[in-house]
Design a binder for these strands. Structure first.
Length: 316
DNA sequence: GCGACAG
DNA sequence: ATCTTGTCGC
């Protein structure tokens, strides 16, 4: 299936644009730039983008510091704290104990596009289209999807298990990454790499490595994919994004006061399962129990291995 | 030091 | 997720 034409904000460009707006003699924080983009949870990605800033003159990343006032690193993790402090002092930024006074020299009056706020609104709008009841055809195949990365190359894989014959078909794709990993925005990074692998069919159930509705806006990658491609999906993640294990029932995950997920498996093999689209929670749990218990037959694990293998072989 | 948020 | 050495646990 063709990848949906998703307009994505250029996060790297927004970060460079915001950083360039910090005037001489002032500083801002990684969190303030993230807030200007629409979500403070992008703070870490702001740091990782500025750590690779190729133009330290045009993009004055020395004016971006920690929220504590500590100046942090300059042009790369673990590098150049002394250079950063010297540059700021030369610009007239007062410092004591290696810290700046953000109340005095803090700047946060950015004029950039709040790209992440727009994406959040899209998630909220699409979340209303999620169908949380069983709307499957006669189930013939169960597919697992996963992505591996090498630099800005994405290697996506889909393992399709034929329920009747037990045979497994592997499909691969390779694409350019156009969006960073930001918690709760995973689908904007990975969906474009997964969609080309998917053929629309209500006879195939898709298991996605990530959350379904167990998500702050009810639209993890499994639900996002299900709604956009109109296919039945289940979210099966190796760790929790939101929600808590029910103290009264360790197999149940609650979020905002309601059951939104189930725990399947034990130890390292544990999966946090939630509705993706067109599947009930009971069915989601049952399907993961049925098709993911055997590691050598699990479509998710086979897809993971296939993507990882493609990534490794591309490295030569 | 604490808290920690899929991949 | 990826990078990456030595270390911890089954």
């Amino acid at each position: 299936m063709k990848a949906p034409e998703i307009e994505l904000p250029d996060i790297e460009w927004l970060v460079f644009q915001a950083t360039s707006q910090v005037p001489r003699g002032k500083v801002t924080t990684y969190g303030d730039i993230a807030k200007a983009m629409g979500d403070v949870s992008a703070s870490r990605v702001v740091g990782s983008i500025l750590a690779r800033n190729p133009r330290p003159i045009e993009v004055p990343c020395h004016r971006v510091v920690y929220g504590t006032g500590e100046v942090g690193w300059y042009c790369g993790l673990g590098k150049g704290t002394d250079t950063k402090q010297r540059l700021l002092q030369e610009e007239g930024v007062p410092m004591s104990d290696g810290k700046v006074d953000l109340a005095k020299v803090g700047f946060s009056d950015f004029h950039i596009d709040p790209g992440l706020r727009n994406l959040r609104e899209r998630q909220e709008r699409l979340s209303h289209q999620v169908v949380e009841r069983d709307r499957l055809g006669r189930l013939r195949k169960v597919a697992g999807l996963d992505v591996a990365y090498r630099g800005d190359q994405a290697f996506s894989a889909m393992a399709v298990l034929d329920i009747e014959t037990g045979s497994v078909d592997i499909r691969l794709d390779r694409s350019q990454v156009k969006f960073p990993y930001i918690p709760s925005y995973l689908s904007f990074r990975e969906l474009a790499s997964l969609a080309p692998l998917v053929s629309s069919s209500s006879e195939t159930l898709f298991l996605v490595d990530g959350q379904g509705v167990l998500h702050p806006r009810g639209l993890g990658i499994a639900s996002h994919m299900g709604v956009v491609l109109d296919v039945p999906t289940i979210g099966a993640a190796k760790s929790l994004l939101v929600g808590d294990i029910d103290p009264a029932d360790p197999g149940s995950i609650r979020y905002k006061g309601v059951e939104r997920g189930r725990v399947v498996g034990e130890g390292r093999r544990k999966l946090y399962v939630s509705i993706g689209h067109r599947v009930s929670l009971d069915t989601a749990e049952e399907m993961v129990r049925r098709y993911c218990s055997d590691a050598d037959q699990s479509p998710l694990i086979l897809a993971h291995r296939a993507a990882e293998r493609a990534r490794r072989e591309a490295g030569d």
